[in-house]
């Protein structure tokens, strides 16, 4: 199994940390992982994206031109990455702020209204975990217990009291995700 994922949105949305938690979850189930971020000016308020690869084999290129899954959180990322999905790939997006929805018919498309849900929960920081939950519902490539272990590994001890909240957000994302086509 090899899963090649792009996660893309605005800097500050938790794109990079979502990728990191996913990568740590892969390590917890003894997989090879790679996490390759955009860096530099993109980090400073512009768009941010990260490639995450989980595999049972040694990972070759961390630089990819096509992906199995695209998790898209703003319009710029939709414009850039929709066309980079493999035929039969999975696109998950939050419709918030999307003015030109995805057009392709050879991929599976899912929506998760994560911004709306995070606002309803009055906790913007749960946004990325709602999205991650949506992804794991569609593609259960890592076990939930390994995500919890991944959270324990990637969060410093002083933030461990936040893990139950993050797990709730994951569950909400799993409930909210809906297939468009």
């Amino acid at each position: 199994m090899t899963e090649e994922i792009i996660i893309a949105g605005f800097g500050g949305q938790g794109v990079l940390s979502m990728g990191k938690i996913l990568a740590y979850s892969g390590i917890m189930q003894d997989q090879e992982v790679a996490w390759m971020p955009s860096y530099g000016p993109e980090m400073r308020g512009g768009t941010a994206n990260v490639t995450v690869i989980l595999s049972d084999m040694r990972i070759s290129s961390p630089i990819l031109q096509e992906f199995d899954t695209a998790i898209i959180l703003n319009q710029q990322s939709m414009d850039k990455f929709e066309k980079m999905l493999k035929p039969g790939g999975v696109l998950i997006y939050d419709p918030n702020g999307i003015t030109r929805p995805p057009q392709r018919t050879d991929i599976s498309i899912y929506q998760v209204e994560a911004v709306e849900e995070a606002t309803r929960l009055k906790n913007a920081k749960t946004f990325n975990m709602i999205v991650l939950g949506a992804f794991l519902k569609v593609k259960p490539i890592v076990k939930l217990e390994n995500v919890t272990k991944g959270l324990e590994k990637s969060l410093p001890q002083r933030h461990h009291h936040l893990i139950p909240m993050n797990k709730d957000a994951l569950t909400r994302g799993m409930e909210l995700v809906k297939q468009i086509r």
Partner: peptide, 10 residues
């Protein structure tokens, strides 16, 4: 280089 420096792996 910037790829290996910025990339995360186990």
């Amino acid at each position: 280089d910037g790829v290996i420096g910025q990339m995360m792996e186990k």
